[in-house]
């Protein structure tokens, strides 16, 4: 179909009031990067730029009438995206700005669950702006702050000039504890390269793996500090206690990284289906590279709550270890049970 060739990429910007979201948005709208963006905002409010492609829309969360509480979409986005896509020549990409308290999940799910939106657009990445100074406070008083980080592909850790080196290290360790796979950028005044937040292809697992071959390596490699999640300055993030505890309490999201050998497809696929059906409400994100027995290709999967997608990515390279890796980010997940049942799927 030609549809897939013309799918417009969509970037979702989350972050609390004061995190620098508007600053970043104004940069996206005003900097000379040769691309045109349609921007969907909750309020025209502080955006100081007059642009016919800024659309105001009231956050409208619709629960799908299928008995599944986590199947939510943003009704307003369906309508606005449909309207925008009727005149597609005007812009190259769409940015969705969410309110500070917004739940990122319905936003993301809209791009998977609505057939019309899905045919014309593709989710590119979820970018969370985090205020280095106020994150600890935010995590105390709201679940949304945590969800936004847990759900992000890119975290812009902003206002780093307002905290000490120790505070910054603690905040970054907390972000890492909530989300071991996101790229973290330390910034002041939201000064991140726009190429680091736009057109990332984070939901295109094959591309995400190309950009960062280690992104599923989980806590093991982080501890060696040998991979390139991009920071503005050299960060010393090799001492945190990965995936389990954070130096700042009040964190309820956990990540579970699983490793195993080659999988028996007759066991693995029913298992992952069952896990996402039963644990769906607890799973915020799921990403994995699976080695299927007798399959020459790597199989990549990703999920949001109960929605899961998988595809063959590329042939295993000579000498590459046929290993399966799976990362769950969510709440109330039993590491032991997941690891045990995952291993039981091995060929």
């Amino acid at each position: 179909m030609t549809e897939s060739q013309t799918q417009i990429p969509v970037t979702v910007l989350t972050g609390y009031l004061g995190s620098g979201k508007t600053t970043l948005l104004n940069r996206i709208l005003s900097e000379n990067h040769g691309k045109r963006y349609a921007v969907i905002v909750n309020e025209f409010g502080e955006i100081g730029i007059d642009n016919e492609l800024i659309v105001e829309s009231d956050e409208e969360i619709y629960e799908m009438n299928n008995g599944c509480v986590c199947c939510t979409v943003r009704g307003d986005l369906i309508r606005v995206v449909e309207g925008l896509m009727r005149r597609p020549g005007r812009f190259d990409a769409i940015v969705v700005e969410t309110t500070g308290l917004a739940d990122p999940v319905p936003v993301a799910q809209t791009f998977f669950m609505d057939e019309d939106v899905r045919a014309k657009t593709k989710l590119d990445a979820v970018v969370a702006l985090v205020d280095a100074k106020h994150l600890p406070l935010r995590l105390k008083d709201s679940r949304e702050a945590e969800d936004q980080i847990a759900f992000a592909d890119v975290v812009v850790l902003n206002k780093t000039d307002l905290v000490t080196a120790e505070e910054l290290a603690a905040v970054e360790a907390t972000i890492r504890a909530i989300n071991p796979t996101a790229k973290i950028h330390r910034t002041t005044r939201a000064g991140v390269g726009l190429d680091q937040v736009l057109d990332r292809g984070a939901f295109d697992l094959s591309r995400a793996l190309e950009n960062d071959p280690h992104f599923l390596d989980g806590d093991h490699d982080h501890a060696h500090g040998d991979h390139d999640h991009v920071h503005d300055e050299n960060c010393g993030h090799d001492h945190h206690d990965h995936g389990h505890a954070s130096p700042i309490h009040d964190v309820t999201v956990q990540s579970v990284s699983l490793r195993g050998g080659e999988m028996d497809p007759k066991k693995f696929f029913p298992w992952i289906e069952k896990i996402t059906q039963m644990e769906g409400p607890n799973i915020l994100r799921l990403k994995g590279i699976i080695a299927i027995k007798d399959d020459p290709d790597r199989y990549v999967i990703q999920g949001v709550h109960m929605i899961m997608e998988g595809d063959h990515q590329r042939p295993w390279k000579d000498g590459e270890k046929h290993e399966s890796r799976l990362v769950f980010i969510g709440r109330d997940l039993s590491t032991e049970r997941l690891q045990r049942s995952f291993e039981a799927c091995q060929a």
Partner: peptide, 9 residues
């Protein structure tokens, strides 16, 4: 009629 900057849907 006119209703400001918001879309008439």
């Amino acid at each position: 009629a006119e209703a400001g900057r918001k879309w008439i849907t």
